[in-house]
Design a protein around this nucleic acid. Sequence first.
RNA 1: GGGCAGGUGGUGAAAUUGGCAAACACGCUAGCCUUAGGAGCUAGUGCCUGAAUAAGGCUUGUGGGUUCAACUCCCACCCUGCCCACCA
Length: 845
Amino acid sequence: MEKYDPNTIEKKWQKIWEESKTHQAADFSKKKKYYCLDMFPYPSGEGLHVGHWRGYVFSDVWSRYQKMRDKNVLHPIGFDAFGLPAENAAIKTKMHPKTHIKETISRFEKQLKDIGAMYDWSREVITSEPEYYKWTQWLFLQLYQNGLAYRDEAFVNFCPNCQTVLANEQVKGGLCERCDSIVQKKKLKQWFFKISKYAQQLLDGLHKIDWPERVKLMQRHWIGKSEGALVKFKIVNCKLKIENCFIDVFTTRPDTLFGVSFLVLAPEHELTTKITTVDKAKSVEKYVREALKVSEIDRSNLQREKTGVFTGAYAINPITKSKIPIWVADYVLSNYGTGAIMSVPAHDQRDFDFAKKFNLPIIQVISAPSKKQKSEKTWESDGIMINSGQFNGINSQQAKSAITEYLEKNKLGISSVNYKLKDWLISRQRYWGAPIPIIYCRKCWELKTKNEKRKTDFTIIDGKEYAIIPVPEEQLPVLLPEKVDFKPTGESPLARTEEFLNTKCPKCKGPAKRETDTMDTFVCSSWYFLRFCDPKNKKKFADKTRIKYWMPVDFYVGGIEHATMHLLYARFITHALHSLGLLDFNEPFLKLYTIGMIYLHGAKMSKSRGNIISPDEIIQKYGTDTLRGYELFVGPTDEDSEWNVNGVNGVYRFLQKVYTLVADFKEAKSSVPMEQQTHQLIKRYTDDLLRLNFNTLISHLMSFVNLISKKEAPPTGVGGIFSSLGRAKEDKNQCSKFQIETLIKLLSPIAPHLAEELWQKIGNEQSVFESGWPSYDQDKIASDTMTLVIQVNGKVRDTIVIKKNDSKANIIDMAIKRQDVQKWIVGNKIKKTVYIPFKLINFVV
RNA sequence: GGGCAGGUGGUGAAAUUGGCAAACACGCUAGCCUUAGGAGCUAGUGCCUGAAUAAGGCUUGUGGGUUCAACUCCCACCCUGCCCACCA
């Protein structure tokens, strides 16, 4: 008996695959294309653990299946190599990020090659290579030239630990997504991408993509569309220019306009200081100063008591014409709506709390259904309008549009849509990223005529204006200099590098300064799937016809943590490039599959917790195929699962069993043993595969192998999925070639090395992956006899074997006569008989 | 506070979507083999009552409902995880 030696087999086949270039995808083919993509990893010094492997195995099984379905499969891999993790690790190990990343990538490459996946390594991309980031910079320029990238001063998120600003998406619950530090608000001049312009498109696009509902929902929430009205409140005794004497307010409840008893401005609101009366100036100034010091998490703490201060100013309610006070309070957010609200304490809990605390009037304008209303509470739902002049008596839902119409007619407001989605802040004060290809030129600014000086075209550095000059495309890439003191200080390390900072203006050829911030790594990863279509292209980000052939990605596999980061950014960039006429589709990923996390001892695997299982050791002991098998077997791939160290051995035992079964295989003398079961196996396996239930695939194979290695038929009715079909009576290892070939083919996506070896062993010269997917014959699955369950009052009392063509009356008669059935119905009258053909009979007594 | 998942043996889980709950594995028990076993093979293994391989009862978070029949559908509640969170 030969022994299963995974390490020899796996080395052998990996070498053969590599030498024959079998995994290289051909651009253009008569075959149908299939683009299956993993979210490419960022190489960290920690290496991959079995949790990371899960997704790679999953996508590879799917890719190999597609290949056996005769598709032209593109299954590429690369590295998201710029960014904080790499840079921080480099600082820690006192290495240059470039050297560090080189080492970690080569470690990752080895680990990824160990998977035995059908990656096309000839297309590998590394985002920190100039050949790649040249096009990331080019992308920036496309957006800039089309008004989709701009530099502006705003209150932004700053991580004091990472020493850089962050995008909204990278702040989770007031903490830095990377390092969990408390994020501070700072007013800074930064680069933004205008993702907000695409809010509606990004919302609409969700309808046409096959993504998990959970992810779509997260994106919908993040985009956060609200419909309502913008209402103008005129400021009383305003000393500003007349057009500035209004406070704009966004509300989703125009129906409550008669109930507005005061306005509240956010501390950051530009009018706050301008409208404050002299006698209140001191207290308002103090309040604003203190409010800006409070961190975002403290500020958004719901338990916190409301604070605020009166500005001394008043406004006019546009509909009631009554004079209402204007307050400042930090419960109003500056970055949502207009940064100012109309307060309706009777119908909003927050306004109610504020009104109670500062003793402000509460005006009820919607009557709640009598019983539901309690005196001390607000009523936030619909009801009948009261205290609302001509709108009294109608439903508050109708009042919404009626009042909005009234406002529009009288030029006091307009209906309006608001989104939570804010523009994407993409500049970073860190070293290890793609330099922003922008130059600031003082001379060009001075040369401009007065009416050419638009706000978007200049920036202020050290109190002086500079013209913003994009680096011309032919000068790309703007190389990231290597000799840099890259220690993060909150200011860009590149600003300390004179030879980078000082440059020549491409327009006027005079001395100029470079932008010294680098781009958020998420910019690099928001277009890499396009580069895989044509990774070596030196003239374009990718050739148009190649993109047309391969894109969009058919199947995208990765973690759910990117739901409102990478997956949103990549969609935005694709939508943007589409609107610029550079792509003829706008959704990059047709189908998305999210991988669940692997837990060990009830906790997420992580180095800091010390509960990491490394694939390397498992491979050494059991081989890659076993690990691949267990990664699937551990549980449903889209759910979190607990890793069981012993479970791996079960898969190993199974593969060993398959190996000996095939190695000792003697063709059966009898016609075709267990033909029916084999067809049934193909059906069950393929059905589960198509439903992406990969965790049950091996179970089916195990059941099948258990069945064919039985020596004798066990008594009928004993467990197992094939029990109703009877068992083999042939001697052990007397199989048909059909049976063995089917087994190997079905096993091949999961255990490709073993499958290739066994395929060769039974006399095939071509690869098993060229052999096509087995098909089943429905007629051969159907059986002449079936096991029918007999219930009495819903309880199983017996089973009988019936023939396909037995009549209903005949079957009921047979069933009723059974001893185990008689026992329960004797002496009772049968009230009802339920017969479900080929399934069961239920007698109700 | 809002939203979304999920809750099945000692463990990971399965159930063709309303039709035999616990497939397949892990673990455990017994036996065989072995100098030895963290190897292999064979058998058993949801829980309770029973000497039993007799017979019966119970069981999918809890409580109700619909149905001949519910892990599956409906209602209420409890617990766990995730996302968002003073978003006007």
